[in-house]
């Protein structure tokens, strides 16, 4: 045989042997509860998806039905803002005439649109609990919700006093608590990076923040789609919660409505 033929035969033999070991021999030595014969073993080794969890009960609690998409984040036309302003007359009692609350309800002015859309849809679908908000959201259509989001996004956002001395920023906000698996707040809520669905927090009433973190920690609030806030909040000490809430709620200069 020529050298070329030898090389090809050697490569084919090597390939066939490694496939035989990897797809037939090893997986049948380590069969799991799904193994049902050779063909099944080969499919498993090839990574073909298996529906072995088909008979298992569905997850007990659903977190949310809302899937965030990019269309929720886009700015809306003027008429949507106008319609939203009219609808928002219903909200002023708690959230303030310009979206800044004096009743320890969350500020909505300048909030990201997808945040407002998601929370209203969760109230409407029963995935976030509140006797007031669930009742108010029940009659809103999808279009209403988008208009409300457009209006509140349009309002000027409350800003805290600018941070000039980094030492006043709590460690939890800047760097998190890595040994307890808590990411920095600023990694999602702005400052370092912003993730879709994470709300603007500056200027939020302290009582509201403390209450929500406690609700996440206890699992009473569970509309964070992948448990991201529940996992953070569970690992926080009451003192850490107090510190962060105070930091985000601290008053800024030239703030409206206060």
């Amino acid at each position: 045989m020529s050298a070329a033929r030898w090389s090809i035969v050697a490569l084919v033999v090597l390939t066939v042997v490694s496939f035989a070991v990897g797809f037939a021999w090893l997986p049948s030595e380590h069969g799991d509860f799904t193994a049902k014969g050779l063909w099944d073993t080969i499919c498993r080794a090839a990574g073909v998806p298996q529906k072995w969890s088909a008979g298992a009960p569905a997850a007990a609690t659903r977190s949310t039905r809302v899937v965030l998409d990019a269309s929720m984040q886009r700015p809306q036309a003027q008429d949507a803002i106008g319609r939203g302003a009219t609808l928002a007359l219903n909200c002023t009692m708690c959230h303030g005439p310009r979206g800044l609350s004096q009743a320890n309800a969350p500020n909505l002015a300048g909030q990201y649109p997808e945040v407002i859309i998601k929370q209203l849809m969760d109230y409407r679908g029963g995935d976030r609990a509140s006797s007031i908000m669930q009742a108010l959201a029940a009659n809103l259509s999808d279009a209403n919700i988008r208009d409300l989001a457009a209006y509140y996004t349009y309002l000027p956002r409350p800003r805290n006093a600018p941070v000039t001395d980094m030492s006043i920023v709590p460690a939890l906000v800047r760097v998190g608590d890595p040994m307890h698996n808590v990411a920095p707040c600023a990694a999602c809520h702005g400052g370092i990076e912003r993730k879709p669905g994470a709300p603007w927090l500056e200027g939020m009433p302290k009582e509201y923040l403390v209450e929500q973190l406690a609700a996440f920690a206890a699992g009473k609030r569970h509309n964070d789609s992948h448990g991201q806030m529940r996992n953070m909040a569970r690992n926080l000490t009451p003192q850490q919660i107090e510190e962060v809430a105070l930091f985000y709620a601290r008053h800024g200069e030239g703030e409206e409505g206060r």
Binding site: L11, S18, F19, G22, L26, G47, V48
Partner: peptide
């Protein structure tokens, strides 16, 4: 030329989207 390329899945040993069989073949190569 022959062997350095079709072996890259050994960088994905912890990735769930690849079957164990391919991981083994790539490791062997």
């Amino acid at each position: 030329l022959v062997f350095s390329m079709p072996i890259g899945i050994h960088h994905l040993f912890a990735d769930p989207q690849i079957g164990a069989g391919f991981k083994f073949v790539h490791a062997a190569m």
